[in-house]
Each structure stands twice: as structure tokens, then as C-alpha cells.
Computed example of a mutant assay.
Amino acid sequence: MPSAILNPQPDEILRISDLHAWYGESHVLHGIDLAVNRGEVVTLLGRNGSGRSTTLKAILGLVGARTGQISVNGRPVIDLPTHRIAHIGVGYCPEERGIFASLSVEENLVLPPVVRSDGMSVREIYEMFPNLHERRKSQGSKLSGGEQQMLAIARILRTGAHLLLLDEITEGLAPVIVQALGDVISKLKERGYTIVLVEQNFHFAAPLADRHYVIEHGQVAAMINKDELEENKERLNRFLSV
């Protein structure tokens, strides 16, 4: 196993080395290499089908097969089942949100198991998401798309996860909701959370992220720091244009 996995940098919370992943016979990831430091917001950018969402799923073992190395807080997790990885403090918000539509907001919040002792209380979540407090007795199916997305994020904050994998959280939402979600990401970063954000909306992601990984054909094609965005605009446009 590479020394980078066994001896991570002091602030490194996630490292992925030579990650390959498959869905059945389809080989989707072709050697992903990336690292995320504690307290960072890092985005995975790229065209649809490039492997961004699969990278998040592969971290948690939610793919058909995977090879390579993944470490969380210096601990190898490639051979662990999904529930064990969650207990290390990894939270995943899928693109389809995954809330319980027949349960109320509050029932959704108290149902997930708390995997670590430092999860947010329901009161803290309502302070961060006032809309959810107003709708706390409403069924998940009665919520707007933006409220459902807020609830999906809030559920993983209850568990005690501090490494958050968020997949396309702004897709299809009104601009006012997108702005509210940006405020939430900023507040979570201030509280010390580490966030890996798959995002199609670059205008949303750019002011929030410390670094951007561009994924193309299941590989990292570029890594661009926040302070390098201006000089890499044309390069990014080439990567992200349809």
C-alpha cells in the first residue's frame, strides 16, 4: 500500500489513490487521485457522465466493484462495508436526496442513527434551516424541492458526520434556494466541516471552494486552486463546455 495512505499529511482527511470503479461490466473510474484537507470545501467539476458522482459513491462502496486506495483520517477504508465507513464520520447526500417521503420533517431528522457523539441537535439544525422548523410537522412529500434538499443535508448533520459528500445539491432549484444553500455551506465550513461537492453550477461552487478537481473520462484532468481561477477560465470552459 502506498506510503501516502499510511502517512497522510497532518491536515489530510481524505486521500484517494488510483481508484477504479465499475458498474457491472462498465469501467467508470480509471485511476482517480485526489486529496482533501480538513476544513476544506473541494469541488468535483466535469461534464455529465465524467465520473464525479461515481467518485462519491466509490468512497462509500456504493458501486459494483472498486480497486485502489481510499483513506479517511489516515485509515484505509477500501475494504470496509458502507456502514463502517459511515461510522468513521462520512456522510453522503445523494443526488436523489433519499428522504423518507411518508415521514414528517422531524421524524426524518430523528430516525437516522447517530454514528458519532458530536452530531448536530435538532435545535441546532432548525437554527441553520429555519424553513425546516416551520415545516417540521409536514410530510416529506409535501415539501418543495429546496426544502427536501435542506432536509437531506440536515439528516446527515444529525449523524455526526464531519466529512460530507454532497451530490448536485442545487440541481433544479430556484436561485433564492441556491443562495440559501450556499450560505449553509459557508456556515458548515466555519464550523470545521470538510465538504466534497459534486456540482454542475460552477457559479455556485466557485466562491465556496478552496480547490477544484476537474474529472474527465473517469480521471482527474486538472486541479485548480481558488486563487488560480481567473487565469484558468478558458481552460475550465474547455473542460466544462458541452
Rank of each mutant, 00 (worst) to 15 (best):
Q69W: 12
E190A: 11
N73Q: 10
F204Y: 07
S117L: 10
G39P: 01
I16C: 09
V220G: 04
I70W: 00
A86S: 02
W22G: 07
S26R: 15
H30W: 13
E107G: 02
S186Y: 10
E134S: 15
G119V: 07
P2Q: 10
S117A: 13
L240D: 07
K226M: 11
K189W: 03
S104I: 09
D33Q: 10
G172Y: 12
F239N: 11
R191K: 15
P10H: 09
P112R: 07
T170M: 12
N7R: 15
I88T: 03
L44H: 00
D18A: 13
I195Q: 00
I169D: 04
P207M: 14
R191D: 13
L62K: 07
K189F: 05
A222Y: 00
L229N: 12
L44A: 00
T82H: 00
D33V: 09
S138F: 08
I32V: 12
F204I: 04
R75E: 13
R66A: 06
L188G: 06
T67A: 07
C93Y: 00
L181T: 01
K189T: 00
M120G: 00
L240G: 02
I177G: 08
G31D: 09
R38F: 10
S186A: 14
G68T: 08
D183A: 14
Y23H: 14
S17I: 15
I32P: 05
H133C: 10
I70A: 05
S141C: 13
R47V: 11
N73Y: 10
V184E: 05
S144Y: 14
G39W: 08
G91Q: 03
G98P: 03
L111R: 14
V77L: 08
R38Y: 00
H162E: 15
G119P: 03
V110S: 15
K187A: 11
I99A: 00
G140A: 01
D18Q: 13
L44I: 05
E199Q: 03
E147P: 06
A205L: 04
A21L: 02
N73A: 13
R97C: 04
N232M: 03
R235K: 15
R84N: 06
G172I: 07
L229F: 12
P94Q: 11
R191A: 14
M1Q: 08
I85L: 08
P2S: 13
L29H: 07
L80V: 07
V90N: 01
F204H: 06
L103Y: 07
P175D: 11
D210Y: 04
G39N: 09
L45N: 02
G98I: 02
P113M: 06
V42P: 06
D18P: 03
V176I: 15
V90E: 01
I59Q: 06
L111G: 12
N73G: 02
N108H: 06
I156W: 02
L151I: 03
